[in-house]
Design a binder for these strands. Structure first.
Length: 852
RNA sequence: GCCGAAGUGGCGAAAUGGCAGACGCAACCGACUCAAAAUCGGUCGACUGAAAGGUCAUGUGGGUUCGACUCCCACCUUCGGUACCA
């Protein structure tokens, strides 16, 4: 066996990978027979990509471990459905149209073609035959159909809402089109303001309480916490204050506030309205008109994040009006301030500065009175000594003071008595409110699903008849259209008769938020060409909910909440049976650029997978991404460790193809290590094989791909010293190689297939032979549990929590035997320094701690 | 700001409350080679010590525990989301 180095060809992924990708495709290996009920079904879904044109290593980071799950589950006997598609509508295509003059469809199509090629080069086992693309009329047709059903049921409705607006370009701006802390337009740098438009909403708030329940879902706790906080259910009361009569104003208007703390009503020393509040104009005194108007204008320049920030100094303006507190008849000043939002609660608050930090700051800033109405029990008699602001955790430890009929009551009695008092006075009632707002789906954009509505002067908004769907996007459009939506420029498309009365009508020119597209796409994957409705009920019943969904945590509160809402709403339309879309969710981390920032073309930090694949091969890139660290962590990109993976794959290649080769540089080559005999050597490699399979299996089940790869490396390292020895090539060796390739196959599908195929060829089975099998059609290896335990083990001995010795003991040693051995140790005696032993702790057989 | 997460060797990281640093990268030493590359074998947290060993060490400061990277409290830094990027 001399000069094997020259005989053994080198591992060259460029030669292997495209060949296997083509072969798998010709075998139809990844096309799922959705009607096959002979095996348990497993619907594996990964968040579909947006065809931005800059497919980067982050896409691979999302999808290669998911592909490994697909392949692993197939080996475990599941009928796996693993589809792919494109979330192809959206703002970047339209921005590109504005910048470069290319049509969004052309730009998107070109990007999708490139991304399909790149996704294929990854060797991912997607079922491409079920591809769904949102800008395809065969898909958005059903967005429109669902919209009309929602409209019929009142789930879709119209109301006024503010948008960020560039007064110079006369267009709506997305958040990413507003730049800098001074909030200017991305194109003309004009300061951005707000404008009210009548827009379409979906009533997600109707489902708020149901969305708070995660029963039966295996979702990460952080995501559930974020959704729960986002929905933000608060229980309290709505209370009417009354505008007081003044020299200039008759008064009498009801000013309704929402409060979670009706028990602090007596501490309300002023009121604050959102600057957008309807009554502001009416109640403002002539003296305050000018400053109120200026403040309202200034508020339009601010983002909600700025407005809610508690770190900046409070701002506000008095309206000059006063309100009467319903529980004590006091007149308190009415202010406006931007920290109160029009969209939350009633858009007005009663301010209780003694017990709310923001109100306290506001009162301090503007010299408004502060009155303590809750005190810790021990200070109940001396409320002046309560440190302010006193924001106690809700508990029975604090009592109401200076609070009329409920003075002296503790929570929750104070809360209940306050509500009763308000209700008796006819000044309000118990109420629950949510932070969650209805979903604004209108976009003043071209590249999205047209909203299937025709506006008629007589009939109002009328749904397009379903038989006329889909409402197509007109091609001839001015993308730099100012005013409202670009679709307003397509007059032939825009002006159509009213479907109800035949009179002149005008199509809705807004399109839908692209989150509508991604709120039900996994149902469509099951039947992308189905014409009888958005979903094929039979297939949905068989395959849904999705067993496993993988995607980024950045979608925690929008996409993942909208998808849950859609599922419930579709259920209520009778289209599907289930209430939740995704049984198990895993959020992988995000790969950042090497500068630690999000990868994007504009930052110039995009890592292109093509170059890496050309250099190292898809398998190496796949394994490297899985090996980098825990999948849910992500982090900045650095390719510096990939050579370790390339080396590992080379070792697998060598082990599989050249078991008898001897290393020239290794003086021990060809001899059994550690002076073992043949039987001992075989046992060592059998143990290593079964331990590796058991470990990799547990790791893949838990999505710990980094440690799964590490275990395979350890396994290959354990085999390597036996290469060229008398053990190599024998039965134990062949089993070990077989197991190594099988365990590697979900993660490095090409190399393992190549090795598997060559080993079959050595046995006279070549491709085309009916006995030939792809490694991806192979069952997962079985583990012999008796090989996982050894007869002796090492036991660490601590003295007072510090490691002092290690003993080799029999696996079945009793605690008494262990204790005797441990106390006999010289190192233990020295560490004890003659102190008596107080306690001996046996930590479940893993460690002994002697306390002395 | 608010909600959520992360912080461990020069670097990526590992560790059901029980031996901190598995597995890799880089670096260094050796073998092979005319030589280099590749490959194979080895060393590798810091300080101290000739060595055996000892001391310190998981963002910072406290706490719980026989024992804390892990649990609790406070803080610092970074990342994700914050409703029109997807």
């Amino acid at each position: 066996m001399a000069d094997l180095d020259e005989r053994l060809e080198r591992y060259d992924p460029r030669q292997i990978e495209p060949r296997w990708q083509a072969h798998w495709e010709s075998l139809g290996l990844h096309t799922t027979d959705l009607s096959d009920a002979s095996k348990p079904r497993y619907y594996l879904l990964t968040m579909w990509p947006y065809p931005s044109g800059d497919l980067h290593i982050g896409h691979w980071y999302v999808q290669t471990p998911t592909d490994a799950i697909a392949r692993y589950k197939r080996a475990k006997g599941f009928n796996v459905f693993y589809p792919i598609g494109f979330d192809a509508f959206g703002l970047p295509a339209e921005n590109a149209a504005i910048k470069r003059g290319t049509h969004p469809r052309e730009w998107t199509t070109k990007n999708m073609e490139n991304m399909r090629r790149q996704l294929r080069s990854m060797g991912a086992s997607f079922d491409w035959s079920k591809e769904v693309v949102t800008c395809d009329p065969a898909y958005f047709h059903w967005n429109q159909w669902i919209f009309l059903k929602f409209y019929e049921k009142g789930v879709a409705y119209r109301k006024q809402a503010p948008v960020d607006w560039c007064p110079s370009c006369q267009v709506t701006l997305a958040r990413e089109q507003v730049e800098g802390i001074d909030r200017v337009c991305w194109r003309c740098f004009t300061p951005v303001t707000k404008r009210d438009l009548t827009q379409w909403f979906f009533k997600i708030t109707d489902y708020a309480d149901e969305l708070l329940s995660f029963e039966g879902l295996n979702w990460p706790e952080p995501i559930r916490a974020m959704q729960t906080n986002w929905i933000g259910r608060s229980e309290g009361a709505e209370v009417d204050f009354t505008v007081a009569k003044s020299a200039e104003h008759a008064g009498g208007e009801k000013l309704r506030v929402f409060t979670t703390r009706p028990d602090t009503l007596h501490g309300a020393t002023f009121m604050v309205l959102a600057p957008e509040h309807q009554l502001v104009e009416r109640i403002t005194s002539p003296a305050q008109r000018e400053s109120v108007a200026a403040y309202i204008e200034a508020t339009k320049r601010k983002s909600e994040i700025d407005r809610l920030s508690t770190s900046r100094e409070k701002s506000g303006v008095a309206t000059g009006a006063f309100a009467i507190n319903p529980v004590n008849g006091e007149e308190i000043p009415i202010w406006i301030a931007d920290y109160v939002l029009a969209g939350y609660g009633t858009g007005a608050i009663m301010a209780v500065p003694a017990h709310d930090e923001r109100d306290y700051e506001f009162a301090q800033r503007f010299g408004l009175p502060i009155r303590t109405v809750v005190a810790p029990a021990e200070l109940a008699a001396r409320p002046d000594e309560v440190p302010l602001p006193y924001v106690e955790k809700i508990s029975g430890a604090a009592v109401a003071v200076n609070s009329g009929s409920w003075s002296g009551a503790a929570w929750p009695a104070s809360f209940e008595q306050a509500i009763s008092a308000v209700e008796r006075a006819g000044a309000g009632e118990r109420a629950t409110t949510y932070r969650l707002r209805d979903w604004l789906i209108s976009r003043q954009r071209y590249w999205g699903t047209p909203i299937p509505i025709i506006h008629c002067a007589t009939c109002g908004p009328v749904g397009v008849p379903v038989e006329e769907l889909p409402v197509m996007l007109p091609d001839e459009v001015d993308f730099k259209q100012t005013g409202e939506s670009p679709l307003k420029s397509a007059s032939a498309w825009l002006n159509v008769p009213c479907p109800k009365c035949g009179g002149p009508g005008q199509r809705e020119s807004d399109t839908m938020d692209t989150f509508v597209d991604s709120s039900w796409y996994w149902y469509r994957y099951l039947s992308p060409n189905f014409g009888g409705g958005p979903v094929d009920r039979n297939l949905v019943d068989a395959w849904c909910p999705v067993d496993q969904y993988t995607g980024g945590a950045e979608h925690a509160v929008m996409h993942l909440l909208y998808s849950r809402f859609f599922t419930k709403a579709l259920r209520d339309l009778g289209l599907i049976a289930e209430s939740e879309p995704f049984t198990r969710l895993f959020n992988q981390g995000q790969i950042l650029g090497s500068d630690g920032e999000r990868m994007s073309k504009s930052r110039g930090n995009v890592e292109d997978p093509d170059a890496l694949v050309t250099r190292h091969g898809a398998d190496a890139v796949r394994l490297f991404l899985m090996f980098m660290g825990p999948w849910d962590q992500g982090g900045p990109w650095s390719g510096s460790g990939i050579s370790g993976i390339v080396r590992f794959l080379g070792r697998v290649w060598t082990l599989a193809l050249d078991p008898h080769g001897k290393e020239r540089g290794d003086p021990n080559a060809g001899t059994l290590p550690h002076g073992e005999d043949q039987a001992a050597g075989e046992l060592v490699i059998r143990r290593a094989a079964h331990k590796a399979i058991a470990g990799v299996e547990a790791d893949i089940e838990a999505f710990r791909f980094n440690t799964a790869v590490a275990k395979l490396m350890e396994f290959a390292n354990a085999l390597f010293p036996y290469r060229g020895s008398s053990v190599a090539g024998g039965a134990a060796w062949s089993e070990a190689i077989d197991y190594l390739l099988a365990a590697l196959s979900p993660m490095a599908p090409h190399l393992s297939e190549e090795m598997h195929s060559r080993l079959q060829a050595e046995r006279g089975i070549s491709i085309g032979d009916p006995r030939w099998r792809s490694i991806h059609q192979r069952d997962w290896p079985t583990v012999d549990a008796t090989l996982l335990t050894e007869s002796t083990r090492e036991l660490p001995i601590q003295v007072n929590g510090k490691l002092r010795d290690k003993l080799t003991i029999a696996a079945n040693a009793t605690e008494a035997e262990i204790e005797a051995l441990a106390l006999a140790s010289d190192k233990v005696k020295i560490a004890l320094e003659g102190r008596p032993v107080k306690r001996v702790i046996h930590a479940g057989g893993r460690l002994v701690n002697i306390v002395g």
